[in-house]
């Protein structure tokens, strides 16, 4: 599900105010193979996609919330400089205003085509998450399929309430790579939302149809 569909599902109709959609990715490493990064960005843009993270203010059940929503369709929802910048600005704005922050993730991890600068986004956003916590602003994270690598190892699991979608694959290293590296047979349901609930990483597993109602309740409880 793309960011636009998540916003339509979660935000009160007409309440979405997108911010910083004008900042755009650039091919800073001059990445050419197997596909030029410039072409990947352009192809996504032609499909009407605006980076792997969109951020802004909305109302959910008439309460204001900052949103950061990943879009897996944009280069696998990968964490890039622009994605990190939008997340950090939203987190800082939430911390400054006390307006709760809602994250919706769907990501393969950090964006290879931006190299180590993509890795640095983990620190950039987690620094901002730390400040959000210090400001005692509520932070909710909805982990959807898939959430891996540099996103699970940065802000996705650092919320006050971690909510996973049923059956979503959530982990650090993907199962394919684990099998390659360790020759291990992985149990059925490995890295599923239910697996992460059993292993203490998420607070609840909530189906999409109940998510908005649950978030409205949480916004009420953490007001």
């Amino acid at each position: 599900m793309g960011a636009d569909a998540w916003l339509a599902l979660l935000a009160d109709p007409g309440s979405w105010q997108e911010r910083w959609s004008d900042i755009r990715p650039h091919d800073l490493l001059d990445w050419k193979r197997p596909k030029p990064y410039e072409d990947m960005i352009e192809a996504a843009r032609e499909e009407g996609l605006n980076e792997a993270v969109r951020t802004g203010l909305a109302r959910i059940g008439e309460r204001p919330a900052w949103l950061g929503v990943f879009d897996f369709r944009f280069v696998g929802g990968t964490l890039s400089i622009v994605a990190g910048e939008r997340l950090a600005r939203g987190l800082e704005a939430a911390a400054a205003s006390g307006v709760p922050y809602l994250l919706v993730t769907a990501s393969g991890g950090a964006r290879m085509q931006e190299g180590v600068l993509a890795l640095m986004q983990l620190a950039k956003v987690n620094g901002a998450v730390g400040r959000l916590h210090v400001s005692r602003t509520p932070f909710f994270s909805v982990l959807t399929d898939p959430t891996f690598g540099g996103v699970s190892a940065s802000l996705a699991l650092m919320a006050d309430v971690n909510i996973a979608e049923p059956g979503a694959a959530i982990g650090f290293t993907g199962a394919r790579v684990i099998k390659q590296a360790t020759y291990a047979d992985l149990p059925k349901g490995f890295q599923s939302a239910e697996f992460q609930l059993t292993h203490g990483q998420v607070d609840m597993v909530v189906p999409r149809t109940e998510l908005r109602r649950r978030l409205i309740h949480l916004l009420e409880l953490y007001r």
């Binding site: 699970s152 650090f172 290293t173 490995f190």
Partner: peptide
């Protein structure tokens, strides 16, 4: 990159360290 590390929360351990 192993199953045990995943079961014991490697993602959150790294994320928590980065934040701390």
């Amino acid at each position: 990159p192993g199953a045990g590390a995943e079961e014991r929360g490697i993602a959150a351990a790294i994320a928590g360290a980065i934040m701390e």
